[in-house]
Structure formats: C-alpha cells, structure tokens
Design a protein around this nucleic acid. Structure first.
Lengths: 192, 192
DNA sequence: ACTTTCTTGTGAATCTTTTCACAAGCGGCT
DNA sequence: AGCCGCTTGTGAAAAGATTCACAAGAAAGT
C-alpha cells in the first residue's frame, strides 16, 4: 500500500487513510505500528518513505531471501513465473521435482533437479525458505527433510497440516479451503 | 482431516485427536463445534462420518458451486487444472480473459471467452463465485462488474485490497505476503 | 505569539477469544 | 447392577485484541 501511495506521489499518509485502504480502523493502524516504535508526526501523519523503509526492516525485507521450489507442477510453474517474486526480494535458487520426465527440463535459467538433491541444494545454496508445491502425500516428508537440511521457514501449498518443530514458521495456502470459506459465509447469510 | 481419517478407517475421533492433527487444542475444537450444535458422544468422541456430513452442510458444501475464472494466465491455469477443485464441488463453468491472443483457446472442455462477456456469463450460467486471477490494476474493476452482475463471493489473487459491498465476502490470497510473513517471523526470532 | 486544525501515541474501557475445570453421560467390564 | 475410564459440552476465569477518547505535539494562518 505504501508503495502504491509513493507511485501516486503521496508524501505523508494518516492512519485514517491507511485504514480506509486496508479495510480496518485508524486506531488499529496506530496501535499496530506503535508496537514496533513511533514512526509518525502528530498533526501530519506518517512519512510514506520513512514508514515503508522501517516496515521493510521490521519484516526482514532488507535482504534477498533464497528460496527453493519443490514441485514443478502447475502451481510450481505459476509461482516460478510470478513476476513480483524476484522484485520483492525472493530469489528462487533451485527447482526440484521427483518426476524423472521433468528432471533436466529448463525453466528460464534454472534446470529442474532431482528430489534426492534437496538437502545438498539447501546447504550449498544457503536456502532459507522452501515452497512446497507437491501432492499432499509427499508434503510431510519433504518438510522434514527440508528442516533437517537447515531451512528456516516453509510455504506450504499442499492441503495438509504439516508437523515441524515449533521454531520453524509455516504458512499454509489452501485454495479449496479459501473457496470453502466463501461458501460458508454465503450459506450462513442465507440461513441465520 | 475427517476425510483422511475416514480413509484410514477411523470411525470415531476425539477432540484431542483432532486438535493434534490441526495444531490446536481440544478445548478449542469442542468450543468451535459447540457453536453449531452438539455432535459428539461423551466418553466416545465424534462419529467421523456424521461430523463430516454435518460440517459439509454447515460449510455449504452439499451443493455444487459454479465458479467463473477471470484471467487465463499462469495462476489461472494452475487453478483450472487443480484436481481437488471439481472433486470438492466447485465447477468452473467459464474462463474469461482480456487478451485477444488467448480468446478462443481451448482449456479442456472450456473455451476462453472475452472479458466483455463477464456479466452475461455470470447471469446465464448462474455463477455464484468468481476467481480473480488478473493483474492488480484490473482487479477492482472486475470485482465491481462481477458484483453488479450478481456474484455472491470473490476469491482474489491480485495483490490489492478490493472494495466491494460488505455483504459480499472476499478471500484474499497474496503469495508475496505469505513469504513476507515467513521473513518476518524468522527475522523476529533473530532480533528479539 | 497566539489560535486553529490536524493527527499521533497511548492508557483505560470494552469486547472477543481462548483456556480451565468439571458435572454429566456413555460404554465396557466384573 | 454398579463401578471405572473416557470424553463431551459448557459456565466461569483468564488472556488477548480492539475501540474509545484525549493529552500532547506539529504546522499553518493571522
């Protein structure tokens, strides 16, 4: 949001304006930000540039994160080509798949590597994150292997809840569950 | 989760077991379920079959939801091919794109339709949901057009917060933001 | 210099969610 | 029939999140 405001030439922004854009309240914006420090000027609001930079540091976006993509199927391919990816500081340093037919295939500058090399690739390329774009049945094993090889966080697209040590953050994206959340809300509105 | 337990031959399941699988607590499972009724048997737990069926009704999954996919790019294609999609009761009744080069292309049984037909397709095919797999710049307009044509819910993959009437549920999937959530958690653990 | 107009940062109040803890109920075993 | 081992459903307590509301500070105009 701050970058969009920058593009529009905005120099300062109030909690009220941020709240409207982000579908929340001004008090919420201020409380949340105050958690990390005091970034605004009374009477003026927040400097867009400064707030953006401070948030980038808080979110750990002031460095490049090396990512390994596991699974070169449809979802993997969509992610790999996603343009905002590299722009945002996420560098996909390797793509891995277990299908012999896919190994060796070229995706841009990367060649698809066999799944057995997962651990060595994580170590050699110093990957901090893995993206799991594999079937549900393979997700738990790949997650364990990744954690053992030193990965620090996991983005999981498989529709299962994977179990990892609690100091390893996991974010889940479950497309069917998102649709089900919509179905529920629509249904509930009809039958109160 | 209940379906996985069914596949494993489980007949009853306790709140404790569900909690372990779902990474939550037994009390939470019971409180949440009690919100919708009383489904368990004391001393025994929940009947897997019965609970599954009841939840399907609560979530509105006891019917087929017609979905229109807007945007036939990488993400759209990954979603369209996603196998669980149809299995789960979501029927993609049309695919729409604004790129003349793509219009007319065949995806399985569907032919990609021009974006101008969005409203008429929603009405004629009685689509309840749209999936927005379009660039950020197009998302707001497509959302408005969809709502005006009678859509009841939106799954938004564009990295913007779209503004629609508050009785229309919107679920957002923002891939970069998921990665940023991981970066934040890892960074925070390092600098407490 | 003073007044007006904004807007932050934050304690206090309110609202919501989660956890605790236990009576009540079910099935199996003796 | 009576007891024992489990597990639910749920009030009550605790924890957490959001909203309120206002003093304090900053700029701009007079």
């Amino acid at each position: 949001m701050l970058e969009l405001i920058q593009d529009d030439g905005g120099v300062t922004v109030s909690s009220e304006q941020l709240a409207r854009r982000g579908h929340t309240t001004a008090a919420q914006v201020r409380k949340d930000l105050s958690h990390f420090g005091s970034f605004g000027k009374r009477g003026l609001g927040y400097s867009v540039d400064e707030l953006r930079d401070r948030l980038r540091i808080i979110l750990g976006l002031d460095r490049v994160w090396r990512v390994i993509l596991v699974g070169a199927g449809r979802i993997g391919s969509a992610l790999f080509e996603y343009p905002d990816f590299k722009k945002r500081g996420y560098d996909c340093v390797a793509v891995v798949d277990s299908d012999p037919a896919k190994i060796g295939e070229k995706w841009g500058e990367r060649v698809i590597r066999p799944a057995e090399e997962l651990e060595s690739l994580i170590k050699e390329l110093h990957a901090a994150l893995v993206i799991l774009a594999v079937p549900a049945s393979a997700a738990q094993l790949v997650a364990e292997r990744s954690v053992n090889a030193g990965v620090r966080g996991i983005l999981n697209f498989a529709p299962v809840q994977i179990q990892v040590p609690e100091d390893i953050p996991v974010e889940n994206v479950n497309l069917v569950m998102e649709l089900e959340a919509l179905s529920f809300q629509i249904t509930r509105a009809l039958t109160p």
